[in-house]
Design a binder for these strands. Structure first.
Length: 728
RNA sequence: GCGAGGAUGGCGGAACUGGCAGACGCGCCAGACUUAGGAUCUGGUGCCGCAAGGCAUGGGGGUUCAACUCCCCCUCCUCGCACCA
């Protein structure tokens, strides 16, 4: 009989121990029950441990899993560690210790806190992506992609973080800065491995329609894939055999193309530039090279450019059009060259005005011609377009595409914004790329039987900055024989970026100890796909895109029978803590004096600074809870004062799962009182509980009894409805 | 600029397919218990009004017996992308 006094310190350890002993949350592969796979994005273990903000993700899913389990589902709810990659390695570098030693310590700490928080994980399935038994299969995936022609090596200018000293995928660059350290990213040409995610662009786009994800999330992926339909058109250089190919979404405006612009890096620039213009062009190219990505991408900037001296011929009307170079054209998109229609494109209009280039109207609202005060990008009726006058934009596009194709001057083309996934990292802490470079045979994949390629244990793991990973300094690792010709060869020394590990981890939970395959097919068929996935929105364009890509590759190769790994996805809001900071001064903002730092509007005060800082100048704000801001509350603290259940109630209840929550001590106090009240009420009810209640039911219930029963069922209905909607 | 989401008491937020607006928590008010209360418990609490009653879901219009919910216009907020041709 429970006491009417609520004593979490007696209740919670008792049950946590029981769960541990009975392995209550073990997922059964052969229960015969319908399955439910619930997953939270696995964390990278860091030294600062878990705080109550992290639990905002884990606790609601935990409650939901318990509910599903009580409803008869066989629930798979696993946990593991995203232990390879920059986050873990940077943390290790900061503490001056080896990530190999740190990861297990940190993981143990996380595991302890999650158990304290009462989370119902099947710990028998715990995984660690830096474990050779795990990364063997990460390497196997590399080989699978390689075998299917989806992994290739290329020397192209890539994103380079000068502080982390490694190449980065496009998805790891935010506003021109490194995702881990915020440094401005540079361009460096280096031989690197890429995964051909662009080959899956259309499928990644189309299959979004069937997913139960938020509109915002799907839209972010659509934007990132960036499909646009148009045409490629060839322009002949006057008095030359050379031609410039452009991509345009508006082939119907060809008659209004009065000049062309090439990106400064375009390979034809050097060949077409005339003697008179050479020095001006070279100076401009040099200047453009010195600019950072962030300068280049700034749309507010006024247009600059230089005439190459060359002219091209507009294929539809044979008019000569001058060819310019300008940095508003990006080499990485389309063909790196554009035809310019100043009448109907704002950027071209600005450029034409500045350099006195002709502006011709070819689209009209009503079929009449009039003076253009600005570019008119809207669709309409063709004018000044010879035989096409009077056609609507859509008709014109159809006809001109056919004409271009017939005369071999162009063709309908689809372009994507997404680029291939750069996977090489010049860093120690990752899965070695399973490739051997042989002078005779080229890049030879390591035979599957030789996997895993073990990451050597080294003292010095710091990134070198030379463009080579620290592994290049280990002769025993580097010097091998070629698997094909058995001649001397050298191992690839780059490692894979951490996103490789997280692109398939949800498969490994299904069969975490399998040594013959990444997971058993029967088990995959039972458990996959993930029914409900939660995690941070910051992975919208990276992890979630990569994982979908790899799943489709597995499907194509016949390893799985589904094409989408995550049916339902929700992104948790953050936990915000009221945090002291100060207003920045001029010296905090080097940007104002031409530096490259971000402009700051608030600088948080660490606890020691806060103690010294004049109180009347402190500015308080709600800021995301994090160890680095010094505003964390730990689950241990709350467990001590109120008990974990009060914390769990608070985190689930204070706002919808996807919204931010402001952490207040008053709020947790209220949740605690609520839990106390429930306990007291329940304990009191149990005093009058009659086990034999069924036989006591009256044949004809009184009105009072009917009311009680109605209320009971209304409550069941409401609670069921709320839980199913992940609303607490 | 483009795209997505949002706006409900003093505060966080409920309200499923249109059907009693404001669940629950904070705060506030009153009472109980106390030497004491920044503890605990009980009750009350959208706004105006003594009351009857009236007014209320960012603003304006519309559909409907009925609108927080659907449609149109506007304002503001948050997030994402941003010279992508």
């Amino acid at each position: 009989m429970p006491s009417t006094h609520y004593d979490p310190k007696a209740i919670e350890p008792k049950w946590q121990k029981r769960w541990e002993q009975d392995r209550t949350f073990r997922a059964d592969d052969a229960s015969g029950r319908p399955k439910y796979y619930a997953l939270e994005m696995f964390p990278y273990p860091s030294g600062s441990g878990l705080h109550v903000g992290h639990l905002k993700n884990y606790v609601p899913m935990d409650a939901f899993c318990r509910y599903q389990s009580m409803n008869g589902f066989s629930v798979l709810h696993p946990m593991g560690w995203d232990a390879f990659g920059q986050p873990a390695e940077n943390a290790a570098i900061q503490t001056g210790r080896n990530p190999r030693d740190l990861v297990p310590e940190y993981a143990a700490n996380y595991r302890r806190t999650l158990k304290l928080a009462g989370c119902s994980y099947d710990w028998d399935r715990e995984i660690n992506s830096s474990d050779p038994a795990y990364y063997k299969w990460t390497q196997w995936f590399f080989l699978l992609l390689h075998q299917r022609g989806l992994a290739y090596r290329s020397t192209a200018p890539i994103n380079w973080c000068p502080s982390c000293k490694t190449g980065l995928a496009n998805e790891e660059v935010k506003e021109g800065r490194c995702w881990r350290c915020d440094s401005l990213v540079e361009k460096r040409p280096m031989p690197q491995w890429f995964f051909k995610i662009t080959a899956y662009a259309d499928r990644l786009l189309n299959d979004l329609d069937g997913l139960d994800w938020s509109d915002g999330m799907k839209e972010m992926q659509r934007d990132w894939i960036g499909r646009s339909e148009g045409a490629t058109v060839k322009f002949q250089i006057q008095n030359s055999k050379l031609e410039i190919e452009v991509f345009t979404t508006r082939p119907d405006t060809l008659f209004g193309a009065t000049f062309m612009v090439l990106a400064p890096e375009h390979p034809l620039v050097n060949q077409i530039t005339t003697g008179a213009q050479r020095s001006a062009v070279e100076a401009y190219v040099k200047q453009a090279q010195g600019e950072t990505e962030i300068d280049r991408m700034n749309a507010e900037r006024t247009k600059t450019g230089v005439f190459t001296g060359a002219y091209a011929v507009n294929p539809v009307n044979q008019k000569e059009v001058p060819v310019w170079i300008a940095d508003y054209v990006m080499m990485g998109y389309g063909t790196g060259a554009i035809m310019c229609v100043p009448g109907h494109d704002a950027r071209d209009f600005e450029f034409a005005q500045k350099f006195g280039l002709p502006i011709v109207q070819v689209v009209s609202k009503d079929g009449s011609t009039y003076e253009l005060a600005q570019a008119e990008p809207d669709e309409g009726v063709a004018v000044n377009s010879g035989p096409y006058d009077g056609l609507t934009t859509a008709e014109f596009k159809r006809k001109i595409n056919a004409w271009l194709e017939q005369h071999k001057l162009g063709k309908p083309t689809v372009n994507y914004r997404i680029r291939d996934w750069l996977i090489s990292r010049q860093r120690y802490w990752g899965a070695p790329i399973p490739i051997i470079h042989c002078v005779k045979c080229g890049a030879v994949p390591v035979p599957e039987k030789d996997l895993p390629v073990l990451l050597p244990d080294v003292k010095n793991y710091q990134p070198t900055g030379t463009g080579e990973s620290p592994l290049a300094a280990i002769p025993e690792f580097v010097n091998v024989t070629c698997p094909q010709c058995h001649g001397p060869a050298k191992r690839e020394t780059d490692t894979m970026g951490g996103y490789a590990c997280s692109s398939w981890y949800f498969f490994r939970y299904i069969d975490p100890k399998n040594q013959q395959a990444f997971a058993d097919r029967k088990k995959l068929d039972y458990w996959m796909p993930v029914d409900f996935y939660t995690g941070g929105i910051e992975h919208a364009r990276s992890h979630l895109l990569y994982a979908r890509f790899w799943t489709k590759v597995l499907y194509d190769a016949g390893y799985v029978g589904f094409q989408e790994p995550f049916k339902i996805l929700k992104n948790q809001g953050s936990l915000l803590a009221y945090t002291p900071g100060r207003k920045p001064t001029a010296s905090d903002n080097p940007a104002a004096s031409g530096g490259d730092e971000k402009i700051l509007d608030w600088i948080l005060l660490k606890p020691d600074e806060f103690a010294k800082y004049p109180k009347d100048q402190v500015v308080w704000r709600w800021a995301r809870m994090s160890k680095s801001k010094g505003n964390v509350v730990t689950p241990e603290q709350i467990a001590e004062t109120y008990g974990i259940d009060s914390l769990r109630v608070y985190e689930m209840f204070m706002a919808p799962f996807e919204d931010d929550v402001q952490w207040t001590e008053d709020g947790i106090h209220g949740s605690h009182r609520f839990v106390c009240r429930v306990w007291r009420w329940l304990a009191a009810s149990l005093l009058c509980y009659d086990k034999d209640w069924r036989s006591q039911l009256p044949g004809q219930p009184s009105d009072q009894e009917k009311k009680v029963r109605r209320k009971l069922h209304q409550t069941i209905q409401k609670v069921t409805h709320d839980l199913k909607g992940f609303s607490f």
